[in-house]
Computed example of a mutant assay.
Amino acid sequence: MTTTRTRTPLVDVLRREAYLARLSLFMDDLPRARRRSIYRDLRAELTAAADDSGMTGAVRDLGPAAVLAHGYREAEGRPLPRWTLGALVAGGVVALWVFTTLTYAMGLLDASRSATAEGDATVVTTGSYLWNDITARSSADSISVESTGIGFLLMLVAYGVVTFVVARGWRAWTR
């Protein structure tokens, strides 16, 4: 007697893949080849376990994705960098930097527009913020904002430094 394998229902596939997606958020620090191997094995184990207790039970038996990922990271035997966390924190720092710089520039532009409302000449307002010289020009029919300086270059350097420090990037070279 031969048994034919039935196709896994779509709901079970979605449930399994949702769990593996949550797990991938916590396992980004593992080497890519190791992660792929783990996902392949877990996908096969979950599919096999679903035949016995259903996909909901199989996923529940694995436990929370964060705890399982922590176990895999511990099994790696050495502390690993957390590149995703570093990139997220550095992205937040850069977003804050850009937001505050744009807010400052908009304030200069508002001051320039206010002065333009009183007369017909072009009004130039200048200021300096986070190593950028910002110039706002306003006339009756146009407005412009210009930024010069090394601020945005420093922002890129800050992104790299914050990423490396928060991620503990030196762990990539230590054993």
Rank of each mutant, 00 (worst) to 15 (best):
M1D: 04
M1S: 11
M1N: 07
T2F: 11
T4M: 05
T6Y: 09
R7S: 09
R7A: 12
R7L: 02
T8F: 03
T8I: 05
T8A: 05
P9T: 11
D12I: 02
L14D: 10
A18Y: 03
A18C: 02
Y19K: 07
A21H: 12
S24F: 07
M27H: 08
D29N: 13
L30V: 15
P31D: 07
R32Y: 12
R32S: 09
A33S: 09
A33Y: 10
S37K: 10
I38V: 11
I38M: 02
Y39D: 02
R40V: 02
D41V: 13
L42W: 00
L42P: 00
R43T: 11
A49R: 13
A50N: 01
D51P: 00
D51A: 15
S53Q: 13
S53W: 05
V59W: 00
V59L: 00
V59F: 00
D61K: 13
L62K: 10
G63Y: 11
P64F: 11
A66M: 03
H70S: 12
H70Y: 09
R73T: 13
R73K: 15
E74Y: 08
A75I: 09
A75Y: 05
A75Q: 10
P79Y: 12
L80G: 06
P81F: 13
P81Q: 14
R82S: 12
W83L: 02
T84L: 11
L85P: 02
G86M: 01
G86W: 00
G86A: 09
L88F: 14
V89R: 08
V89N: 07
V89L: 05
A90N: 01
G92A: 07
V93R: 07
V93W: 10
A95S: 12
L96T: 15
W97D: 11
W97P: 01
V98P: 05
V98S: 09
V98T: 14
T100I: 01
T103G: 14
Y104G: 06
A105F: 00
G107I: 01
D110M: 08
A111P: 01
A111L: 12
A111W: 06
S114F: 05
S114L: 10
S114I: 05
G119F: 08
A121Q: 13
T122N: 04
T122K: 09
V123W: 01
V124H: 10
T125P: 00
T125H: 08
T126S: 09
T126I: 01
T126C: 01
L130A: 14
L130C: 06
L130T: 08
L130G: 05
L130S: 12
I134T: 12
T135W: 13
S138N: 07
S138V: 10
A140C: 03
S142H: 14
S142C: 06
S147P: 02
T148E: 11
I150Y: 11
G151Q: 08
G151T: 13
F152G: 04
F152N: 08
M155E: 07
L156Y: 09
A158C: 12
A158H: 04
Y159F: 15
G160Y: 03
G160L: 02
V161N: 07
V162A: 07
V162W: 01
T163M: 04
R168E: 03
W170D: 07
W173H: 09
W173G: 09
T174Q: 12
T174H: 08
